[in-house]
Design a protein around this nucleic acid. Structure first.
Lengths: 159, 159
DNA sequence: CGTAGAATCGCAACATTATAACCGAAGGTC
DNA sequence: GACCTTCGGTTATAATGTTGCGATTCTACG
């Protein structure tokens, strides 16, 4: 089962796991995890709240990196291609992928109150799309699902 | 069953139906379908290809309407609130809703080749979300699903 | 009527997100 | 070390979306 980001947890292990996986994925694909790319990935993973590309600019600048948009977008594109992060279209923001290597489907729940994004098992959505594929006679190569609402933790606090 | 936009059809009836429904929905909600709003809706419906907000500006200008961004966005927001159009987050574009009044779920298939957007019955996706809701203990109030790939018609032509 | 209040629209400026084009720097390969 | 490819720095610009304010139009109610 995927981890629940709305429960307290030792977030440093999230980051550690992500970085370890990233190194493995890069090696498998003969891709170079350069300093900027690595740092961008760490920054994206610094919380479970999706981060905007322009939020990263000042953070990188603080650390002596170049801080122009193309730098960030190039790093994000690289990470997207390897499936290490996801782009949330409804937020124009980016978040770490908790299990790189899954299929064409990405599925998230986004809490409107705390802002944290929970990646969901995409299997069910993927199955559904397979059904759509045969019903409509289309060929699906990418799919996104974004649910937004209030997470359990925020629901508790408001009651 | 929802109409298949990838098959040849008399598109003027799509538009007529949409405009008629729009009038009904506005009346039900005590909302005013002003000239700009009506024209924006017609333009969005002028094809099944999602249209960008900035694409509408020159079209409106040609017809003597004000052509500044706020005009278009206000009309689009109005139509979105009434559920007469959908915004496709992965395209930053807008498309007519073929059956206003459905629930929180919107679901589209987007052809990467011809650009046409097919709205899908959202019931299955909505059911799935209800399951997510009880499993995770969250409260979902909005959801989008966007599948992209190649439509039957374009598949035929490429083979 | 006619006037008060609300909704709508025109307009100018600005904010946010993303891309293009060009070139030099860094790393890998032989 | 020479060459090639990938990567990153830099400037500029494109695409998308918002804010704020005042003028106008519509509507409800007396």
């Amino acid at each position: 089962m995927t981890q629940n980001v709305y429960r307290p947890h030792d977030h440093s292990t999230c980051i550690d796991n992500a970085m370890e996986q990233a190194k493995a994925v890069c090696e498998q694909n003969g891709a170079r995890l350069t300093k900027v790319r690595q740092r961008v990935l760490e920054l994206v993973w610094s919380s479970h709240k999706p981060v905007g590309a322009y939020d990263l600019l000042p953070l990188l600048a603080n650390e002596g990196f170049n801080s122009a948009p193309p730098t960030v977008y190039r790093a994000l594109d690289f990470l997207l291609e390897l499936g290490l992060i996801h782009r949330l279209a409804s937020l124009n923001a980016y978040v770490g992928c908790s299990h790189p290597g899954h299929g064409r489907a990405s599925c998230f729940f986004l809490c409107q109150s705390c802002g944290k994004a929970q990646e969901l098992e995409s299997q069910l959505y993927d199955d559904l799309s397979t059904r759509v594929e045969s019903t409509l006679g289309v060929k699906i190569d990418h799919q996104i699902t974004e649910l937004s609402g209030i997470c359990p933790s925020c629901l508790d606090q408001s009651s």
